[in-house]
Computed example of a mutant assay.
Amino acid sequence: MKTPPGFDRYLALAGKFLSRGRLPALLLAVARKSARMKLVRSDLNLLQELLVAWVRGQYRGLNSTAVLSVAAALLYFLTPVDAIPDWILAFGLLDDLAVLAWVVRRWQSELDAFKVWRDNQSAEVRASLKTLPLPEKVERT
């Protein structure tokens, strides 16, 4: 499976988000944008739940490259100016959807393992995965 064009740039950006603890802010932004996207809402919800569980330390059965790829795909989804700018009617979101589909296909076994883990958790844990963590305020020195 070939990596989408320009995705490497988002992998690097995702690494910065992860290392700076900015993943909760990314998840909140994705939640806002995905509310309008019925077509991919289930995939976006799954990716968000996966990262929420990872951020909270509840689920660590995940390849670190997969975490980076999922975060990069969500960043790509959020970025309005990427391979095809989002403001171009009818085509602007096609590249976003293609990148999300590529990540879901590429990491399908990791996502399936997460679904098994999630489905075996208590109702409280499953509900908590839908509650996004609050972004931490970063103090600048």
Rank of each mutant, 00 (worst) to 15 (best):
L11K: 15
P80D: 13
P24Q: 06
P4H: 03
I84W: 04
L47A: 05
V104I: 08
D96K: 12
G57L: 12
T65Q: 15
S42D: 15
L134R: 06
T79C: 10
D119V: 07
P5W: 10
R140W: 11
F77L: 14
L94W: 10
L94C: 11
R56K: 14
D82M: 00
V52W: 01
L94H: 04
K33G: 04
M1Q: 09
L74I: 02
L28C: 09
V52I: 11
L23Q: 13
Q48V: 12
L11M: 12
F7T: 13
R140F: 13
L93M: 08
A127C: 00
A123E: 15
N45C: 07
K33C: 07
A53R: 08
D95Y: 12
L68F: 00
S19T: 07
L97I: 15
R140V: 15
G15Y: 08
L89A: 14
A127D: 03
L23G: 08
L27T: 03
L46W: 00
A31S: 02
K115G: 04
N63T: 10
R41P: 02
G61F: 10
A101I: 08
Y59N: 10
L47G: 06
L97C: 08
A25G: 10
F7E: 07
Q121I: 08
L100D: 06
T65K: 13
L75H: 10
T131L: 03
V103G: 05
D43H: 12
R60C: 01
P4G: 06
Q48D: 01
G57S: 13
R32L: 10
A35L: 15
K16C: 01
E110P: 03
S19M: 06
A83Y: 15
R32V: 13
L100P: 01
L46Y: 01
D86N: 11
L28S: 04
V125H: 00
L132G: 00
L89D: 12
D82L: 00
S19C: 05
R32A: 11
A101E: 04
R22L: 06
K16P: 00
T65A: 14
R22Q: 10
S122H: 06
I84Q: 07
P85C: 03
Q58I: 12
V99W: 05
F77T: 05
G61K: 12
A72Y: 05
R20P: 00
L78Y: 04
L74H: 05
L89E: 14
L134W: 03
L94P: 01
K38Y: 04
L132Y: 03
M1R: 06
R22N: 04
L18Q: 13
G21T: 01
R56E: 09
D82T: 10
V103M: 06
V81S: 08
E139Q: 11
T131E: 05
P135Y: 07
L51A: 09
L74V: 00
K16V: 09
E136N: 08
R106C: 01
L47F: 00
L50V: 15
T79G: 02
S34F: 01
A98K: 09
A31Y: 02
L132H: 01
V104H: 01
A66G: 03
R118G: 04
L97W: 14
D82V: 06
Q58S: 14
E124H: 05
L44W: 02
P85M: 03
V81R: 11
L44I: 14
